[in-house]
Write a protein that binds this DNA or RNA. Sequence first.
DNA 1: TCGATCCTGTAG
DNA 2: CTACAGGATCGA
Length: 269
Amino acid sequence: MPELPEVEAVCRKLRQEAVGSRVVQMRVERPGIVKPQDASWLESQLEGALLHAVERRGKNILLHFSGGRVLHVHLRMTGNLYVIPDVRFRVASARVWFELDSGRGMIFEDSRALGRMRLYQDSDVPALLNGIGVEPLSDEFTVDYLASMVAKSRKPAKLLLMDQQFIAGLGNIYVVEALFRAALDPRKPLARLRRTKLELLHRGIVDVLTEGVESAVKAYSQPGVFNEAEEFACAVYDREGQPCMRCNRKIKRIPQGGRSTYFCGGCQR
DNA sequence: TCGATCCTGTAG
DNA sequence: CTACAGGATCGA
């Protein structure tokens, strides 16, 4: 599920529903999620702790608890983190759960169990986030930043833009959509792009993510789960064989870095 | 820089 | 049955 917009939506909801709550009990049902940390140690560290802030950096979630404890959560492919009214009614794929006050539950659900969760101290956070690039929806992400970043690499556009060291939070779907908007070929490097094209790409990234956040927030705003009807409408992602919205040629799918890239061979150059 | 790997679920 | 899934890391 989650790229930056979905993670952002998750965080906003947790701020409303979980911040200010105390952890009565914590259970790690799948130790692999917290490896190499010890599950029962982690539980004992957080039981009794008060959640006082939720922070997002790229696709990373930081849950700040009392006592200077910070739980780093990464949802990876299928993770989700949300609050339910009664912890007893959690789903089977709840890999980690927290009983909050008045019996509510904060659930880390993850069918594939690829997500990760690890406990740190406040003072470890800078080191932890070291190597995570700029926030694409912040003022730091400028056309100049994009230009300097792009000049450093001859990797295919798609792979470069997915590199979290440069831009934090862009994933497969939104990269593919941003490249479509800028009409750029995902296979070609971005070094030596004209300024106008760079501006278009910058716009594409910012717009796609902004729209993504809007729909993700709507999709997650219904109580409990998330509403597919509000999902971000993709122009090329998962549209292999369909006609391009811009030039009517067929959308192609190719593998890049082991993942699927969708693009229009007609107008993306 | 590539492929395998971590996992489970779903679609074809 | 196989292929593939919105991610990241590790070793060759």
